[in-house]
Design a protein around this nucleic acid. Structure first.
Lengths: 288, 288
DNA sequence: GCAATCCTGTAACAAAAAATACAAACGTTA
DNA sequence: TAACGTTTGTATTTTTTGTTACAGGATTGC
């Protein structure tokens, strides 16, 4: 964080000469914009001459006016990038847009939330936050990406997260270890793939708690699932949309994070440290 | 109230020429500071020449660069002087549900669409629909799931779709084959991973057309990307949301499908047949 | 009240930055 | 593939801007 020049000027106000103080006042009155124009503009606003502005800047310790401006810009940038200020700079509300697909996508998310059974959501979150359980995530041909996404996030806030992926043959290896203490989250929408259903059923038979995110018509897994979260997936396109599923996934992720906030925080910090220690030069790590 | 130049630039993004867009991206990436320095600094940051910057501001309707800067300063001044004056988000329709996260997710998708540069979207779709190009998809730690999702869909409607995934070492193997005829779609949001940026840069150097789906602050890749689609990702949670990114991905998928409807239909039919012939008892196939 | 010193503005200068002219490169279309 | 129009960067010019030199004027100490 860059220490604000503003404070320094206030404190050192009496070091300046009378006219320099006029300059200082003009700057403080419209900080920091006044300093971002030209010397002449600054001088005029302060009611002094250009050289006075230069002397003022020099006394502050800057080699030249350009350096002074650079400092002001850096400060502003720093300030604007803080999360609080950001929203107000950027945000404007805009109107609706004609595209039917866009409209439907927005509506789907809204409708999904409107009809989302809060109880189901909350209890699934609570189960997912329980770190004594191992969480398994499974998706179909397209929804596998969602399972992956959710796994990537959950792994950060809690231990024992497994994304059931890759060769189907290997799925069975996962199945062996699953028991009544564990939980399986399945993403399954229309064209309910047989192998997904079979896997979920097998897991249920072993006492695993099954959470299901599905479309409104509901997958056959719904019959065995302990918690079902239905989403709107219909769009004017040959495919179903996964945007609402993603939205639900994010609700779950956020819920689990919040459900056990300290643990999440601790783990996030620890991971950050690990990553830095592992290779300070690199910002992230590999995808898996 | 001065209407933010930011939004205007976003919306008129497709009026600009390719290099002017680079300038626009550089400005949006560091708005509005980038515009408050000199033309030369701006040009260097955007990776273009000074005259391009001047043409850019001219096209925005400013008589000269100084006027442009004055406008930026005025905007900032206006904004800094009204700390909480703009809680404008409230004006939108009443939330069906009290949950702030749900509200924000819906709003993000709506806002993303509202400000999505249609020209950028259309031209990226057209490029992605061109089957003579090979499509490469790349994502970061979390957004890799989106790249995967999009790849899974695109593979159905067109040939030559590659999801750049797995060990980073293998990425280079992909890089070898990439050339000016090809296109790379990158998902990259805050915490822009160095290796993603590097890969995109390397691809660009080989003449690959780069399409970027990113957050509003825009990734460093924006500088080299031919087409940028910004999404709202901020949510009241420790993470950024990918729901809007998913929505954009689905727009692209639907667009490509529609852009060449017959081919899509033919391929979908052919795949269906193949799948049935391969194993009539099974409904789907493996994930990869 | 005088002189020495410190401020301050005017004006000239030098540096830079903005703006322009032009030519090369690019993509596009016939 | 050739020729057109567009776009883009290089080089140059022109303007603006920051900077400095200097002299008049205010201020303070003796």
């Amino acid at each position: 964080m860059i220490p604000p020049l503003l404070e320094e000027i206030r404190e050192r106000l009496d070091e300046f000469t009378a006219t320099e103080r006029k300059a200082a006042h003009a700057l403080l009155a419209n900080y920091p914009m006044q300093g971002l124009g030209t010397v002449a503009q600054f001088a005029k606003a302060a009611g002094v001459s250009s050289p006075t502005i230069l002397r003022f800047v020099a006394r502050l310790g800057f080699p030249g006016f350009a350096d002074f401006q650079a400092r002001l810009r850096a400060e502003l940038e720093n300030q604007l990038n803080s999360p609080l200020a950001r929203s107000s700079v950027m945000e404007t509300d805009a109107s609706v847009d004609g595209d039917p697909l866009m409209d439907k996508l927005v509506e789907n998310v809204r409708e999904t939330f409107a009809h989302l059974p809060r109880g189901e959501l909350q209890s699934l979150i609570r189960i997912l936050a329980d770190e004594k359980r191992t969480v398994y995530l499974l998706g179909g041909r397209f929804t596998d990406a969602l399972a992956r996404y959710m796994a990537a996030h959950l792994r950060i806030v809690r231990p024992n997260v497994v994304h059931v992926a890759g060769q189907q043959g290997n799925w069975l290896d996962q199945l062996i270890g699953m028991g009544p203490k564990d939980v399986l989250v399945v993403f399954d929408i229309r064209r309910y793939q047989a192998e997904i259903v079979r896997f979920a059923e097998a897991a249920a038979r072993q006492g695993v708690t099954v959470g299901l995110i599905t479309d409104s018509w509901m997958s056959p897994i719904g019959r065995i699932a302990a918690h079902v979260l239905p989403a709107r997936v219909a769009v004017p396109s040959p495919w179903d949309s996964s945007t609402a599923l993603m939205a639900i996934a994010e609700l779950l992720i956020a819920g689990v994070t919040q459900e056990n906030a300290e643990r999440s925080q601790t783990r996030m910090k620890a991971l950050e440290d690990l990553r830095n220690a592992y290779d300070p030069k690199r910002t992230g790590d590999d995808l898996l």
